[in-house]
Simulated scan of single mutants.
Amino acid sequence: MKRFKLLHNILLATLASTCLLSLNVAYADDALKMELTVNQVIKNAEGKIIYSPVRTAPAGTVVQYKAIYTNTINKDINDLMVTLPIPTNMTFTGEALPASAQASTDGKNYADMPLMRKVNDKLVKIPLSEYRSLRWNIKLLPANKSATVALNTTVN
């Protein structure tokens, strides 16, 4: 049974998570704080979704990576681009919050989901297993406020 190690994935996601601030305004290095949580996604008997902190999980477990970005300065931040990687031992489920996320198979080129490619002169959907990261454009992050992005994955 394959298992994932929470610490490794948090470190990977934290290191690979990037924030690109609009270039027309200079911000202090500490203008943005990011908090990453990793939770197992569980549906209870009533069909309600419950999120439970997880350290290890067997293959097939649905895990949510959620990043909360907080503007720590007294000035609005415009056009904030944030990216979360999909760890190599995980497969994206297709669920992202907000749903406006763009996806990438290489971490460089992003497009709206579902990602498509040409095969035998036909456009076909790229399998979710090939998605490597998601990116969101937070148009406005007001002073001293937070924005949350999340993606769900399945342990391979």
Rank of each mutant, 00 (worst) to 15 (best):
N39W: 04
E95S: 04
E46C: 07
G107P: 05
D29P: 15
N120G: 13
D76T: 06
I138N: 06
C19V: 14
A99S: 08
L6E: 14
T56E: 12
P98S: 15
L140I: 07
K122Y: 12
T83G: 03
T153F: 00
T91G: 08
P127H: 08
K5V: 12
E35S: 13
A99H: 05
R117P: 03
K75L: 02
N39M: 07
L21K: 12
T70A: 11
A13M: 12
I42H: 12
R132E: 05
V63L: 01
L134N: 01
N109T: 13
K108Q: 08
L32K: 15
N144S: 14
P98N: 15
T72C: 06
K66L: 01
A59I: 02
V54T: 12
D106Q: 11
S100M: 07
G60K: 07
P142F: 00
T88L: 15
L6T: 08
I126S: 11
A28N: 04
Y51A: 12
R132H: 09
M1V: 10
R3C: 05
N156K: 13
N137S: 06
L6H: 15
M113E: 07
N9V: 06
V62R: 13
V82E: 03
M116I: 11
E130M: 13
L21W: 05
Q102F: 08
N74Q: 15
A59K: 11
T148C: 01
M113V: 09
R132Y: 02
K43D: 03
D29L: 14
M81F: 12
